[in-house]
């Protein structure tokens, strides 16, 4: 598994009177395969996971993925760390399913035929093969999220970060996404409010008011979180 190292990281948004520190002195090394992140709204979870692929560069401290600093090696880091957001509509950038999956491949210089083969494999793997030429906007929410996942996975990242991927989905669609995430051989970092998604995870981090307040196996972490919220 890749080694993600977060070293004395603090992060502040805004300037002057609108300054707001959303992460305070977080140090943690992630080497497990399945890592969960939980915490109240606004506790800094999204900011934390955005650090992992360099989408957010910390105002203090450093983040490295397999030794690559996200500040200096943003491109290499992004190739290793795929990212799946909450709102599938905002991640799908091409009008049809197959075109969206092909998007990242073409940008990496794969030939048309090779890209098409990879796209086909990926769509089959995630149950979207019958929708290859469908407009993305006609898919269900769950299918859209699976498409967003496919489009990230087709480029072969080593780490997959998912920021509340099931929050906008109904139970059935959430279950479909959960099944896919469970079966992934990648290192997975998952932010979620659906606590049952964390069953079988190796490690769960709890954030509260910009701090990492708990770090341990899922059961104890969820317990800690529930106490915080009560």
């Amino acid at each position: 598994m890749p080694v993600i190292d977060i070293e004395r990281v603090s992060h502040t948004y805004g300037e002057g009177t609108s300054r707001r520190t959303v992460l305070r002195d977080v140090t943690v090394t992630l080497t497990e395969q399945r890592i969960g992140i939980i915490g109240a709204n606004g506790s800094g979870k999204s900011t934390f996971v955005r650090l992992l692929n360099g989408l957010v560069v910390p105002t203090q401290g450093a983040v490295t993925v397999d030794g690559l600093d996200t500040r200096r090696h943003a491109r290499e880091v992004r190739r290793r760390v795929g990212f799946c957001f909450t709102d599938p509509d905002a991640q799908i950038v091409m009008p049809t399913v197959a075109e969206d999956v092909a998007f990242g491949l073409r940008r990496r210089g794969l030939g048309k035929a090779e890209a098409a083969a990879r796209v086909r494999e990926t769509l089959e793997a995630y149950g979207l093969a019958d929708h290859a030429d469908h407009p993305a906007h006609l898919l269900s929410g769950g299918q859209k999220q699976l498409l967003a996942l496919s489009s990230v996975l087709v480029t072969d990242p080593e780490v997959l970060v998912l920021d509340e991927p099931t929050t906008l989905l109904d139970l059935r669609n959430a279950a479909a996404v959960q099944r896919v995430v469970r079966g992934l051989p990648h290192q997975v970092v998952l932010v979620t409010h659906h606590l049952d998604l964390l069953d079988g995870f190796d490690r769960v981090l709890v954030f509260d008011e910009a701090r990492l307040v708990h770090d341990g196996p899922p059961h104890a972490a969820v317990e800690h979180y529930r106490k915080l919220m009560s």
Binding site: L55, R75, G82, F83, D89, A90, Q91, R108
Partner: peptide, 17 residues
Amino acid sequence: RHADALGDALVARGVDD
């Protein structure tokens, strides 16, 4: 808000490579 999120997704998918 959508455009903002789309921008993040494009960066995450390596568009500024």
